[in-house]
């Protein structure tokens, strides 16, 4: 192809993850052609075998670091990327696999695998920014495709992305939902979780699971107090904060506070 304008080169990288966030990009359907027009998809094994050598203008990184090999690979990715954007709970907080961080990984390996000696893994699952500097973190498990398009558009246009860091409650109220916590007594992580999903679960009368991780200034202790009043015990509280963002600092600390 001989496009006259120089389009930014985009690469999509995978670390320990389920691929759900990369799929959000493919799921853009209508907008996918616009994305392909705006950027040159230079490396995206999930979508195409075509591979253009680096360096890349924008790298989207999905997944967490769980092996020594990946800990080395992320440095190479960083070196070959002008802008590095992490996408999803795995890349931004270690993901659901960060539950291992609270337990003894050796024990798991010996129990689960017939040949533990073949397993080469780290004791922890850690977010990308614990290994290399990250330019922007897009939260979510999975990410919201509108937010992804917003972030790509913003970087292409050279402006700041509009990705709010306030609570899920804000989106919940704008959406006109009845608060499940107040009206039904259903535990909800919305007041300490960052917006982005459009308050999907409360819209279906479920409490928020915290997929988008801690919001700005999260007061988890105050929320736990109320959850306790609603009848949640210590063990339940520990599990409540240990989902896809279990390793995110405020959630990790709060779960550990009750895990004694």
């Amino acid at each position: 192809m001989n496009t006259p304008v120089q389009r930014p080169k985009l690469a999509v990288w995978k670390f320990a993850s389920c691929d759900g966030c990369q799929l959000s990009l493919l799921d853009c359907e209508d907008e996918l052609l616009a994305v392909a027009d705006a950027v040159e998809i230079a490396y995206f094994p999930e979508a195409t075998r075509r591979e253009v050598a680096g360096p890349y203008d924008i790298s989207l990184v999905e997944g967490s670091v769980t092996t020594p090999r990946d800990a080395r690979r992320i440095r190479q990715v960083r070196q070959s990327s002008r802008t590095l954007i992490t996408i999803g709970a795995c890349a931004t907080a270690g993901g659901i696999q960060a539950l291992r961080n609270f337990r003894d990984v050796e024990g798991f390996i010996n129990t689960v695998y017939a040949h533990p000696e073949y397993i080469d893994t780290l004791a922890t699952s850690t977010p990308i920014d614990e290994h290399v500097p990250v330019d922007f973190e897009l939260r979510g498990c999975p990410i919201n495709k509108h937010q992804l398009l917003e972030v790509i558009s913003a970087y292409v246009a050279g402006r700041q992305p509009n990705v709010p860091t306030y609570s899920v409650c804000e989106e919940c109220k704008r959406g006109g939902n009845v608060c499940v916590m107040v009206a039904h007594g259903t535990p909800c992580l919305g007041p300490v979780t960052q917006a982005g999903c459009g308050a999907l679960c409360p819209a279906y009368n479920r409490g928020c699971y915290g997929c988008f991780g801690p919001k700005e200034t999260p007061n988890t202790a105050a929320l736990s107090g109320q959850l306790g009043a609603l009848g949640m015990g210590r063990e339940e509280l520990v599990r409540f904060y240990r989902n896809f963002n279990a390793h995110a600092e405020p959630f990790r600390q709060e779960s550990e506070r009750h895990d004694k």
Binding site: D37, S153, A222
Partner: peptide, 28 residues
């Protein structure tokens, strides 16, 4: 110490009137 800074109070309040504006652009 008790407040979640969740914004629910302002959003349910029938007199609170604050809004902000946002611009979005298409990819091209």
């Amino acid at each position: 110490d008790r407040c979640l800074s969740c914004a629910n109070c302002t959003l349910v309040c029938p007199t609170c009137f604050c809004s902000s504006v946002e611009d979005s652009t298409s990819l091209d």
